[in-house]
Amino acid sequence: MPLVYAGVTSHGPGMTGRAHLVENLEARDQLYAALADQSQAIKESGAQVMVVVAAEHFANFFMDNMPAYCIGLGERHQGPIEDPEWLRIPKVAIPGSPDLARRLATDIMQTVDLAYAQEWKFDHGIMVPLHFLTPEFDLPIIPVNINCQGPPLTPLSRAWAFGEALGKACANADERIAVLGTGGISHWPATPDSGKINEPWDREFLRRLQQQDKQALLSYTDEETYLEAGQGGFEIRTYIATAAAAQGPLELDFYTAELPIFAVGCTVGHFNLNT
């Protein structure tokens, strides 16, 4: 069955952990409203499971054995790895979907080399989106990771190929599946430059998604991205893979660079699956 929903969202730990410190309450509440709308759209899609394409931050994968792409086959996932009081999200167990995940993995492997993991601990990269989108943590989640943290990194063209393979695998399954890509655009997270956001760079990247400009999306080099968008910009791979899975243009529902305390230009969008 074709995807029933595909979207993207940001995931900074400040979105929950530092929410009480925000001074620009108007922008914060607009973000939260956009996320509430996204939550409703996922619910109304009738999704039975959500594949989350994430860019985790050394919660499961390290430079001793770093997969470019990995999918989670576990029956349940634990999260967050962070101190619950720091992230302001309690520790929970989140259901997986091992049978479907295994079928997706088998299908994707026909064209893309993919690692798998039967154990997966969620960090803020998945927990923050779920906190807003499935606040009861009851929708089964299949986590997918693209290494965006420890270079060398997978090329953008391969992220696109992975996304295409993911979309086709979901279409070959009987279940109603949503795909959510979560990452930052430009940002310098967890460094002294935290809060720096290159809004023009972000908006140009989003324009390319909105216009389905594949060639332009895949033209960024990591050197350019690092200079213009920081090491956090490497996470555009999650958006690119989700765009490829969706095969449709992005409808941008919300963007603001006015919440630097969240350390990222906060983005919410969904892909038009009908074109």
């Binding site: 530092r18 090491q231 630097p260």
Partner: peptide
């Protein structure tokens, strides 16, 4: 950075001057 100098290794040799971008801070 002030005490020990620029970042010596890793993914960011140095990402910026370390100014604050967050008014709340």
């Amino acid at each position: 950075i002030k005490k020990y100098g620029p970042v010596r290794e890793g993914v960011y040799a140095m990402t910026g001057g370390g100014q604050s971008f967050t008014l709340e801070g």
